[in-house]
Computed example of a mutant assay.
Amino acid sequence: MDSIRFRQRFQPGDIVSGTILNFKNPYQAWVQIQDFKLLASMNARYPEGTELFFVVEKLYPQIILKEVNPKELKDRGLNIIV
């Protein structure tokens, strides 16, 4: 199951890159992160295939991913896992 493997590989605070697969609603999209397909919170609607960065906010009780602006990453000196 993707959620179990994702929890083993990542921890809260990790920054991951993902590709938009499709939108569930205006604020959530299915994204491909490495070999995982997960639902992420979005700031805007992007075309399918767009690559973005997400912060792993929580792993339990559900995985919470939130889109982050690349400029924010540099300003905060965050660790990006590709």
Rank of each mutant, 00 (worst) to 15 (best):
M1Q: 15
M1K: 15
S3K: 11
S3N: 14
S3V: 14
I4V: 11
I4Y: 09
R5V: 09
R5H: 09
F6V: 02
R7P: 03
Q8Y: 07
Q11R: 15
Q11N: 01
Q11Y: 12
Q11V: 12
P12H: 03
G13N: 07
G13I: 08
D14K: 05
I15P: 08
I15N: 01
S17E: 08
G18A: 03
I20F: 13
L21T: 14
L21D: 13
L21M: 13
N22H: 15
N22S: 15
N22T: 14
K24G: 00
K24N: 08
N25A: 09
N25S: 15
N25G: 00
Y27N: 03
Y27T: 12
Y27K: 13
Q28V: 12
A29R: 07
W30N: 12
V31R: 02
V31W: 00
I33S: 03
D35L: 06
F36H: 09
F36L: 08
K37E: 12
K37D: 07
L38S: 01
L39M: 12
A44W: 06
Y46N: 05
Y46R: 03
P47A: 12
P47M: 11
P47W: 04
E48D: 14
T50S: 13
E51V: 15
E51G: 01
F53T: 03
F53H: 14
F54A: 02
F54V: 07
V55Q: 15
V56F: 04
E57F: 04
L59E: 00
L59C: 02
P61W: 07
Q62P: 01
Q62D: 04
Q62F: 09
I63T: 00
I63R: 01
L65E: 06
L65T: 01
L65G: 09
L65Q: 03
E67T: 11
V68H: 03
V68K: 00
N69Y: 12
N69L: 09
P70L: 05
K71V: 10
K71I: 12
K71S: 06
L73G: 05
K74V: 13
K74R: 15
K74N: 11
R76T: 10
G77C: 04
I80T: 09
I81P: 12
V82C: 02
